[in-house]
């Protein structure tokens, strides 16, 4: 179970140059930030060294230059990226897991008043912009890495709950699910064996797209000063701090900005091509042929 999905995903990415580039970009940053942190000491990213301040990329042996306090930009990108990626991915998981569980139950037991009530709450949450939900959570918990992870996670739950519920609902009346009940399977067997594997594809797509958005949001909240606090490094925070030097040293904004862009772009491109590959209704030729009536669907 699930092996088929992994194989399909790998095949989809292989067959699509854009998706390959996207996943390589994501992989590159993950290796850079998680691996780099093993080599570059944390202090290099946080300890000021005023004698080296405001070096341009390439100057005095630095690869990406230094910031206004003389801290090496590469070190800050590595440690900042680790923060951004870890916060983003943790929060995507924090949102996806409860979202999927809620969605499965609300979809399978859709007549129950409890699921109706839960989904109504999800609708209200979904109507709120995620950034606002994030700020509400931060208001309660105070700024910091943990609270923005939780904030983004909470704001992700409704979309996962929605998409899972919709797919579950669509499958619940599917004949093979009905057949599973007619055979005498327990509900939990039906849910786990027959429904979950068949809705995994849209969930993987959603997760990929959401991971990109979560990283964006994490950096956005940090940019507002609600995430990690200085002297810690985080891409959004780095950009916020470099704003005052935008006119004189735009590279301080541009470098972390491009890193953020590439990671998110990578996730989005991969998510898009997975969706195209997995969703048969978007299938290119097959669809037009069907509409032409070659396969008479009766």
């Amino acid at each position: 179970m699930g092996n088929g999905d992994v194989a399909r995903i790998i095949a989809a990415i292989r067959g699509d140059k854009a998706a390959l580039a996207g996943s390589l970009a994501v992989l590159f940053f993950i290796v850079l930030c998680l691996g780099g942190a093993l080599i570059v000491p944390y202090s290099a990213a946080t300890m000021p060294n005023l004698s080296m301040a405001m070096l341009l990329p390439g100057e005095r042996g630095t690869l990406l230059g230094t910031d206004e306090l003389g801290r090496d930009m590469l070190a800050r990108i590595i440690w900042g990226g680790q923060n951004s990626l870890v916060i983003g991915l943790t929060s995507a998981v924090l949102g996806a897991l409860p979202g999927v569980i809620i969605g499965l139950f609300a979809g399978y037991y859709s007549e129950s008043p409890i699921s109706t009530a839960i989904m109504r709450l999800m609708d209200v949450l979904l109507a709120m912009p995620r950034i606002l939900l994030g700020i509400i959570v931060v208001t309660i918990l105070g700024p910091g890495e943990f609270s923005i992870s939780l904030a983004i996670g909470v704001s992700t739950i409704p979309s996962f709950a929605r998409i899972t519920r919709a797919s579950t609902l669509a499958l619940r009346s599917a004949v093979f699910v009905e057949a599973s009940r007619a055979i005498g399977n327990y509900d939990r067997v039906t849910l786990i064996k027959h429904i979950l594997p068949n809705i995994l594809s849209p969930l993987i797509v959603q997760f990929t797209l959401d991971a990109g958005q979560a990283i964006l949001m994490a950096s956005g909240l940090s940019f507002l000063g609600l995430g990690p606090q200085p002297p810690a490094a985080e891409w959004g925070l780095m950009i916020a701090q470099a704003r005052v030097h935008l006119f004189s040293n735009p590279q301080l904004v541009l470098i972390p900005g491009l890193c953020l862009l590439f990671v998110t772009l990578g996730f989005n491109i991969v998510g898009d091509s997975l969706r195209d590959a997995i969703d048969p209704s978007l299938g290119r030729v097959s669809r037009s042929i069907r509409s032409a009536g070659v396969v008479t669907a009766r």
Partner: peptide
């Protein structure tokens, strides 16, 4: 459009600000 949904808006804002006003 995929670039558009991937760009953090504060980065986009600062870039526009740098180019068009500064």
């Amino acid at each position: 459009s995929i670039l558009g949904i991937s760009t953090p808006i504060f980065v986009a804002g600062l870039c526009l600000m740098y180019i068009f006003s500064m």
